[in-house]
Amino acid sequence: MAKMKLALVQFQSVLGDVEASMARALPMIDEAAAAGANMVVFPELFTTGYHLDTVGPRMTELAEPIDGPTVRALQEAARKNHVYIVAPIALLHGLSGVPYNSAVFINSDGTVQGSFDKVHLWALERFYFRAGHEFPVFDTEFGKVGIMVCYDMGFPEAARTLALKGAELIVCPSAWCVQDADVWEINAPARALENTVFLGAVNRIGHEGDDLYMHGGSMVCGPRGGKIAQLGEEEGILYADLDFDEVRKNRVTSPYLRDRRADAYGEVCAY
């Protein structure tokens, strides 16, 4: 039985202060591990905050390479606690000095397996980040894990690509505003159901600036789309026990992936 205890950290960042945010995050990893978690997932841009009117002009300064101090500290936390960590940060890589809105995947032995760069950039993000172009899937002893970031979840092609590449759990770190709470409640269960995957959508909590309130509502959905667990509007850690065999069973009884008609979908790629 491939069972995992997933921990989604509904987190309030310290806007523009990476060190202060990390000082809050590291004890929450210890807390999750003490509760038996095997994987700990933080929200989008959890080290810098999201309010781009404030931190956007500083994003290149706040961003780090994958071997920078933030990832190194998280590697040590993963190794110490023997947990996988999904760490969404502003990441510098490649030839350009413009960062990506990324999520680093750290193995339970503290090694970095890779990273995902947000593909669908929202609003002001286009001014401060480069867009990603790939959907990697990461291996664990429990099953395969894919990552989307926030706005990516609104595009069925993103989750479908991950599922077709073998993902059985998709995590979606987000900074989702309260004005779109209704969309949040629809997107996560829909992406789980149509791809017969577990889906962990972890949102930020709190006010940033005068105009941004992120309402939390982090949730874990099962491979039939139903909610397994959900938080309200408070900082905290959401736990869910996932049996990856349920994905495999449901892909037999609800064979959406098997019964796809790719030969009939030409129009999807034509425009």
Score class of each variant (00 low, 15 high):
K3F: 11
V18W: 08
V18E: 04
E19M: 13
A20W: 09
M22C: 10
A25F: 06
M28P: 05
I29M: 07
I29A: 05
E31W: 03
N38Q: 12
V55W: 09
P57S: 11
P65G: 08
G68I: 08
A77E: 06
A78R: 03
V83C: 05
V83K: 05
I85H: 03
P88L: 02
L91I: 02
V98C: 03
V98Q: 13
N101W: 00
S102C: 03
V104D: 03
G110C: 09
V112Y: 07
V112P: 05
V112A: 05
Q113H: 09
G114F: 02
S115M: 00
D117M: 00
L121Y: 01
R126I: 01
F127L: 15
F127D: 15
Y128E: 00
R130M: 07
A131H: 08
T140G: 09
F142E: 04
G143A: 14
K144H: 13
I147H: 02
Y151N: 03
F155N: 09
P156E: 04
P156F: 04
T161D: 07
A163R: 12
S174W: 03
S174Y: 02
A175L: 01
C177F: 13
C177S: 14
W184K: 12
N187Q: 15
E194M: 15
T196Q: 15
V197F: 08
V197Q: 05
V202Y: 00
I205D: 04
H207R: 15
E208K: 11
D210L: 15
H215L: 11
G216E: 09
S218D: 07
Q230N: 06
L238S: 04
Y239D: 05
A240E: 02
F244Y: 14
D245H: 14
D245W: 12
R248W: 14
R248L: 15
S254H: 13
P255I: 14
P255Q: 14
Y256T: 10
R260E: 14
R261V: 11
A262Q: 12
D263S: 11
D263A: 12
E267T: 12
Y271C: 06
